[in-house]
């Protein structure tokens, strides 16, 4: 059963086409990695899934709900999809605890006790329980991103979207974030991840999507994608040769 179904999605900024006829789907419990050169439209594509980016053509269904339908209650749908951003986007004026609980209380209507309990549970899971009273500015980038993951998980999402979650991190902090994501994948979370971390893709991805110039060029099983590089399209080979040579 597909959790996220993207069907023939196209998007333009004025005359400039950023997404061209993209079709793919993410099944329940599946981990899909989206990669490609910068400007290939991968971040735009993942943001169309929870309607942070509107699209002009095609359809997207999340758990059977049409994202593009004007009648869809978008806040309600978004509350069920977790998203982690490149720049963390913790709310700097709120403490870590408040970051974890504000949407649970205001959006899901949970009591403060329940929101607190849930928030602390996930903060503990990402190994940052001791930081609960601090503010985002007092944490390192890696810690902030782990809090951001905990914040998304505290909403009990049916799927998680990751938009280059490690791209803004110092190299020594990349692994602490990837470890959390690997654990999440092993637990069966449905995940769509835009990332250049091919090690992560090899370890936990079920499928790999390669995008270039707004189009999905490759969409195949991980074994197939990494197994026979020569069978890949020229653009994918070119991209892989650049990021895999070290």
């Amino acid at each position: 059963m597909s959790m996220i179904a993207i069907k023939n999605v196209s998007k333009w900024y004025g005359d400039f086409q950023v997404l061209t006829d993209c079709t793919t789907d993410v099944k329940k419990g599946e981990v899909v990695v989206v990669c490609g050169p910068s400007g290939s439209g991968k971040s735009t594509l993942i943001k169309t899934v929870n309607a942070l980016e509107p699209f002009q053509k095609g359809e997207i269904f999340v758990d059977g709900v049409s994202v593009g339908d004007p009648k869809t209650d978008l806040p309600k749908l978004r509350a069920r999809i977790g998203m982690v951003f490149q720049n963390f986007e913790l709310f700097p004026h709120l403490s870590i605890t408040e970051n974890l609980t504000i949407a649970q209380q205001r959006v899901l209507g949970r009591s403060q006790d329940e929101a607190m309990q849930k928030g602390m549970h996930y903060l503990d899971r990402v190994g940052l329980k001791a930081q609960a009273g601090k503010f985002p500015g007092q944490l390192s980038g890696g810690q902030q991103q782990r809090v951001a993951i905990a914040r998304a998980l505290a909403m009990d999402p049916i799927a998680m979207l990751f938009d280059e979650p490690t791209s803004a991190l110092d190299p020594e902090m990349v692994n602490e974030v990837l470890d959390v994501m690997v654990e999440l994948a092993h637990e069966g979370m449905t995940m769509m991840c835009v990332t250049h971390e091919m090690g992560f893709a090899r370890k936990v991805a079920d499928r790999v999507i390669f995008m270039d110039r707004g189009a999905i060029v490759e969409d195949c099983e991980k074994e197939e994608f990494f197994g026979d590089i020569d069978a890949r399209s020229e653009r994918a080979r070119h991209f892989l040769s650049k990021i895999l040579q070290h």
Partner: peptide, 15 residues
Amino acid sequence: ISKGQLNAAYALGMN
């Protein structure tokens, strides 16, 4: 305030 903050709020289901 960066647009990312607004996106993060929306992504959490806020109106």
